[in-house]
Simulated scan of single mutants.
Amino acid sequence: MGGIDVANGVVGAVIGMLFAVLFQQPLQDAWFRLRRRSASALRSLGRREESGPAWRTFSLGPLHTSALIVEGDGETPIPPEKVFVHVLDDEVRLPTDMEPWREEIALESEQLRAEGRTPLWNGPRYAVESFDISRSALDETPEVHLRLRPTDYYTFLAAQQLDRRLPDGTTPRSRYLDPEQPLTAPAFLQCSFAVNIAVVTADDMLVVSRRSERVRMAPGVWNSSVNEGLSRHIDSSGRSAPDLHAVCRRGMREELALEPHEYTLELLAFVLDVDKRHWSGHYFARLKELRSTDLQARMSRGVADRWEHQTIDYVPFRPSAVVKYLLRDDRVHRWAPLAPALFHLALVRAYSRTSVERVEAQAVRRL
């Protein structure tokens, strides 16, 4: 009997091991799914029907911005030949009760000049009359129609005072803007269109700039690699409309001393800062041969617009490294509104939306 008992014991042990190998993990997985669904069902009992705006500005955990991605997802670039820029003849005019604000700025500039300091240069600019999207009939490629009007820098500065009281007690923001219609605004409140470029070196380092304390708008904040506004004087030859890719090439040359043959350039999205009404074309540039050390050496030999940047950081262009950098304690509340969305879209272009969003979710959970 002893031998039979031993044999039965061995057989039982073997069967137990087989059972554990074959069924233990599936049973554990089934139990985990049951618990998760039960917990979800219990939570849903206390929920009510909800609704929210279809248009939401870019955010990432504790990082909240006023950047609204209007067109583009980062995965598929927008072809340059599908962007149509139209310039209208009539110049933008401020409402009568805002004209004195512009006069104040002109007087301030004259006072600076009289004191021997740098005056405010009233450069010719463009205001955004409208931005429209359509789709091509065959492959549904986006077609962008951007309508611009002439304006100037003094008008832009006056219109940036969105929360200043008017004589009747209202503000430009409360009188002219509807938060439920973020894409609708009068042209005189949209006197800014710029290109923002995420630049990645040949050794996969993302260039991040900090704006100089000398600039009038948003001094000292961390920003895109290159930021360049449209200029009527520089970017339009004769009566022709500006070419956004050409504006990018000018910005790359003036801010980083880079020439067109040294990089590739893709348009990823059009983005609107709904707080300040700044429009932007978001671009992604990869340097073909220049590494981060090469770029630093190049810039040490002279840059046309050196004064616009106070500091330049070089961040490893990997999702985990860039997301961690975006959420750093000393960065998270010091970003220019349009920059985080730009870097997210550049990561999506390089690594795919699924990969980037997985890393972003993991980074937020760890906070």
Rank of each mutant, 00 (worst) to 15 (best):
F284D: 13
E266F: 00
S237I: 13
A185K: 04
Y263H: 08
A246Y: 01
I197A: 08
M217I: 08
Y283G: 09
E254H: 02
L230N: 04
S192R: 14
F188I: 05
H278P: 02
L244H: 06
N223I: 05
L272D: 00
V247D: 00
R211V: 12
R286K: 15
S240P: 07
S209R: 10
E262I: 10
S192A: 10
V199M: 02
V215D: 04
R216T: 09
L287N: 11
S231Y: 00
V226N: 01
A187N: 07
A285P: 02
T201Y: 02
V221K: 07
E254D: 12
D243F: 04
S231I: 05
L272M: 11
A218Y: 09
P242V: 10
L265A: 12
T201W: 00
E255F: 06
E266W: 01
V199S: 00
C191R: 07
L258I: 11
N227E: 08
M217P: 00
G251L: 00
L244C: 10
L287S: 14
H278V: 12
A198H: 06
A285F: 01
R253D: 06
E213M: 13
L272C: 09
S224F: 02
G251D: 00
W222E: 03
L244M: 13
S236R: 13
V274F: 00
A269W: 03
N227I: 08
V207R: 11
G238C: 03
R249S: 15
V271N: 06
L206T: 06
L267D: 04
M205S: 09
L230G: 04
A285N: 09
A185N: 12
R277I: 03
V208M: 07
E259D: 14
V195M: 02
V215E: 05
A218W: 08
S237D: 09
N227P: 04
G281A: 15
R250L: 06
L265V: 01
A187F: 06
R250Q: 10
L189K: 11
F193R: 12
L244F: 02
A202H: 05
R216V: 11
R250A: 11
N227A: 10
W279H: 15
P260H: 07
D275A: 15
V221F: 05
S240V: 11
S237L: 14
S209G: 10
V207N: 09
V271E: 07
R211Y: 04
V226R: 05
H245Y: 15
D275F: 14
K276G: 13
V208N: 08
A218N: 13
V247Q: 00
V195L: 04
M217A: 08
E266C: 04
P186A: 05
F188K: 11
Y283I: 07
M252K: 04
E254G: 04
M252R: 01
R210P: 03
L258H: 03
P242Y: 03
M205P: 02
E255Y: 06
D243E: 15
R211D: 04
L268R: 12
C248P: 00
Y283N: 11
W222P: 05
S224T: 11
